[in-house]
Design a protein around this nucleic acid. Structure first.
Length: 337
DNA sequence: TAGGCCATCTGGTCCT
DNA sequence: AGGACCAGATGGCCTA
């Protein structure tokens, strides 16, 4: 069901500790406070340990002897407190540095995992990253919303779905989720008038799983079609760029080319499906993703704003120009309520 | 400038 | 003993 390859090896890359971190502002930090690379620390510590080890033991023995009286008995009962010799202090320092490096690596792994989570929740933006807590909240809501769909067996209307997604989220995040839908919608409309109509999907397809997509429902290696053979290689960058008019820094990322990639589909509304890149898209664009939102009867705000036509297909019949804004208003209202 | 978010350091605790 | 995990403290960066 998840789009992007959920590969733990990506989450915890082997070289995680010593790699170059590129988080915003971190480079500056590196300049100010050069990062102590774990490997360095380890090497240093090994050197520190190895060279003086024998000497250390001698020293410690001597110190221990110092604590004995003339009869060879310890001066005090109970556990002896080891003297803090230079060497011992140094060793403690090194161990602390090692522990710091491990802790840093651990936190980076955690952050990588969080980044991967950001990519599979329905709202992903490189430029406006969700905070950690918001990512977790949104992920929880997303899981809940999807399981509700499974439980009930039918799709809720768009607004309900988005409302569920936004429960407990801050207003900026709520706006971001709505913004994601708008971006999608805009691109969708642009696609209609332009040459790349097939490059976009309706906002519905952006956030809903591809229920009617037999081609996509089977992960590679599990029979059926291998999409990577019939479609152009996955490249979400183009769509990313179409949304943000900038080059995705992850274009070159190999992590999405894993052969273990799950069906190359992303529901998050920002990235496109792998299949969108196909030249023969018009033929293949038949995933049942043509859900469109039509205004519900009655004034806005009464119940749902959008409805899913259950058996009719109105591809591209999405009245977004007016509605996208209204939708955000609705979402804001939801938030404020 | 206050507040939110984040990375890092640190010491404590638990587990192997 | 050493590593993993955790939470508190701290300081930097960013934004409203």
């Amino acid at each position: 069901m998840l789009t992007l390859p959920f590969d733990e090896s990506v989450v915890m890359p082997e070289t995680q500790i010593c790699r170059k971190f590129t988080r915003e502002g971190e480079e500056q930090k590196q300049i100010k406070k050069p990062e102590i690379c774990a490997k360095h620390v380890l090497v240093q510590s090994k050197n520190l340990k190895r060279v003086p080890e024998e000497e250390t033991e001698k020293e410690e023995e001597e110190e221990d002897r110092e604590e004995e009286d003339e009869n060879g008995l310890p001066r005090r009962r109970g556990p002896r407190k080891k003297k803090m010799t230079k060497v011992r202090v140094e060793r403690i320092k090194v161990r602390r540095q090692e522990a710091n490096a491990r802790e840093r690596g651990r936190m980076h792994g955690l952050n990588d995992a969080l980044d991967n989570l950001r990519k599979v929740v329905p709202c992903y933006s490189k430029t406006q990253k969700l905070s950690k807590i918001e990512t977790l909240r949104l992920a929880k809501n997303y899981i809940w919303a999807l399981s509700e769909i499974l439980r009930i067996g039918k799709r809720p209307d768009l607004l309900t779905f988005v409302q569920n997604l936004c429960k407990g989220l801050s207003q900026p995040t709520t706006n971001l989720v709505a913004g994601c839908l708008q971006l999608n919608a805009r691109s969708f409309l642009m696609g209609q008038s332009g040459e790349s109509a097939h490059h976009s999907r309706s906002p519905y397809s952006a956030i809903y799983p591809p229920y009617h997509s037999p081609e996509l429902s089977t992960p590679p290696g599990h029979g059926a079609l291998d999409n990577s053979k019939t479609m152009k290689p996955y490249n979400y960058c183009s769509t990313y760029e179409s949304f943000y008019e900038s080059t995705s820094p992850e274009c070159a990322s190999p992590q999405f080319e894993s052969p273990l990639s799950p069906p190359s589909m992303n529901y998050n509304g920002i990235f496109s499906m792998k299949q969108e890149e196909t030249l023969d898209y018009s033929k293949n664009y038949n995933y049942g993703m043509h859900y469109c939102a039509v205004p519900a009867r009655g004034p806005l705000g009464q119940g749902s704003m959008f409805r899913l036509p259950t058996d009719t297909h109105f591809p591209y019949d999405f009245h977004l120009r007016g509605q996208s804004l209204t939708m955000q208003d609705e979402l804001n209202a939801v938030f404020h309520n």
